[in-house]
Design a binder for these strands. Sequence first.
DNA 1: ATGCATGAGGA
DNA 2: CCTCATGCATA
Length: 254
Amino acid sequence: MDQLDMLDPTGQMTTLAPISESPLTPTHQHLHGSYHSMNHMMSHHHPGTLSGHTGGHHGHSAVHHPVITAAVAAAGLHPDTDTDPRELEAFAERFKQRRIKLGVTQADVGKALANLKLPGVGALSQSTICRFESLTLSHNNMIALKPILQAWLEEAEAQAKNKRRDPDAPSVLPAGEKKRKRTSIAAPEKRSLEAYFAVQPRPSGEKIAAIAEKLDLKKNVVRVWFCNQRQKQKRIVSSVTPSMTGHGSAGFGY
DNA sequence: ATGCATGAGGA
DNA sequence: CCTCATGCATA
């Protein structure tokens, strides 16, 4: 049934272009930090930067090396106790449990962060809090967010002891603005994209265009799909990891 | 909870 | 165009 829809990446690839590409850049990237713009009402401004990026690679490959770890410890510099995936995992779970115990939603946490008035720390979305709890963020992103969420948690629990209750009730939703629309890629097309991704995670612009036309999708949609797919691969917990989805001897999602 | 998208910053 | 952090919209 699907044989018509299911393109054979390996076979069709020759029609699109030679499989020679990918200069394979060492992935050197500098983060910039948070921001939110497209708000046509008010322009908030985030002066700070949430990213604690090291300035290049993923920054956690070498730190786990026994020798290096020992060297770091010997140097008196902080061990990687803050960058240890298991520590992050443990914290994420503690965080979630205590958050729920406080009767606070993920969205609430996001909003509350702005009230902490930490330097360069504004509010975050429910999505981000959720992703933090489920470890579906990059290693560096987790490390950057951990101290912030930890600060909120401590503050929230401190106030909980005081039995604080604030009776606010204003729910005046602002008028309707233009809604952003999300294009939905159908299952067959998605399967094809995955097949292409398997053989070439970073297709050239020309290839992307060819794939887009073949699948009858906008080129930009296809390009963004590949970008998002690459990001998924870098998550601490790859979406597809049925085993040990909670704890144990967490290791590496890569 | 997750899919598709935006935008800063960097080559 | 990419990577990364992040979020709106939606399943």
